[in-house]
Computed example of a mutant assay.
Amino acid sequence: MHIETYISDLLYRYDCVTIPEFGAFLTKRVSATIDESNHTFFPPKKVISFNEQLQHNDGLLASYIADAEKIPYEIAVQKISKQVKSIKSFLNEGETLSFSSIGDLILNSDGKILFEPSNNSNFLTEAFGLSEFKASNVNREVYKQQVETLEDIIPISITPERRISRDSTTARPYLKYAAVALIALTAGGFAVSNYYGNQVETHNQLAQEAASEQLDAKVQEATFVIENPLPAATLNVEKQQGKYHIIAGAYRVEENSNSKVEELQALGFKARKIGVNKYGLHEVVYSSYETGNEALNALRDIRQNYNKEAWLLVRELE
């Protein structure tokens, strides 16, 4: 029995998976981080740790193994106990125990278990398809701003305005009258414009009301009669139900997700797209199931024959 496979499945959905009489694997969600020393961006993930003190059997692992292998719960507990004895014997010999996609376990000089998590797996389902990437350095050129002092090479002189000698009493009254006339013309123009604008708007509104009344009268008089109606067509469309979805992949480009759906449907799967996740990726599933047992059996078959990276998503779709 490969117990690490069952532990890995449960870590996607639970924050604590206990191996009775041995210890527990714990997960903690951390946000996306940036390593400024090498300009590397890391997506959000679940950080895995191991606690040797948590050894009480909470029934989670045994129940999952019993459902997956179709065996009684008591038999599953016995198989776990046998596996734990083998693990402890292996560690006592000074060997390093590697759990695929989870991490490595080893005993220190004090007989305590040390755990080194694996960096190859991300158990945070919301970050599926995201990977770390390194950004290249951006070289910027800095230009110094130099301020030059302008010398007074060409002097600037200001010549006082020369006024034409004339009788102010004869010139200023004409300017006053011209300003009064300009104000009067402007005010009159605004008044005439507003008046004609209101007239045109009123006319358009009355014409629109009359047209609407004529159209309503024509519609009420019209009678539609279909002598030979077409027979009603009945389409049987199978709609996938269930909250257990086997994920085939998530794609940034929607055309790639459509191609993946066609490829899986050609293989006989009820493949479809279940939407776009919070990171903008189009998720494609092999199929969806009503019960967890059906989904686990299908997942085991897909991993063995088609895709080892397939995983189970539990989510109610809107």
Rank of each mutant, 00 (worst) to 15 (best):
A217L: 15
N198G: 10
Y244N: 08
V192P: 02
E238F: 05
T291V: 02
L296T: 06
R252M: 01
A266V: 14
E263R: 09
G280T: 03
R252N: 03
F190Q: 08
Y286F: 02
L215H: 07
Q240W: 02
T186S: 15
T234Q: 10
T186D: 13
Y289K: 05
E255D: 03
F269D: 01
Y196M: 03
I247K: 01
S193W: 11
L185E: 10
L230V: 13
Q199K: 13
N194G: 10
L267I: 05
N194I: 09
Y244V: 07
N307G: 10
R252D: 00
K260W: 00
E294L: 09
A295H: 04
G292P: 04
E262W: 03
Y306T: 08
E283F: 08
L185W: 09
A271N: 02
K270E: 10
A217Y: 10
V219I: 12
E262P: 01
G197D: 14
Q208W: 11
L281T: 02
E201V: 14
E201L: 14
I226A: 04
E201N: 13
I302H: 01
Q240G: 04
G280F: 04
A271P: 01
G188W: 01
Q220P: 07
R272C: 05
A248N: 02
E213S: 13
E221S: 14
T234G: 07
E283A: 08
S259Y: 08
F190W: 10
S287K: 15
L215E: 13
K260C: 08
N293R: 10
D216T: 12
A222H: 08
Y306V: 13
A295R: 03
D301L: 06
L215V: 12
A187I: 14
Q220C: 08
E238M: 04
I226N: 09
Q304S: 14
R252P: 06
Y244E: 06
E227D: 08
Q199T: 14
G188E: 01
A222T: 11
L185M: 13
A222R: 12
V192A: 06
E221V: 06
S288N: 11
K273D: 09
N307V: 13
N258M: 07
F224K: 08
N293G: 11
A211E: 15
L281Q: 00
S212I: 15
E255H: 00
A250P: 03
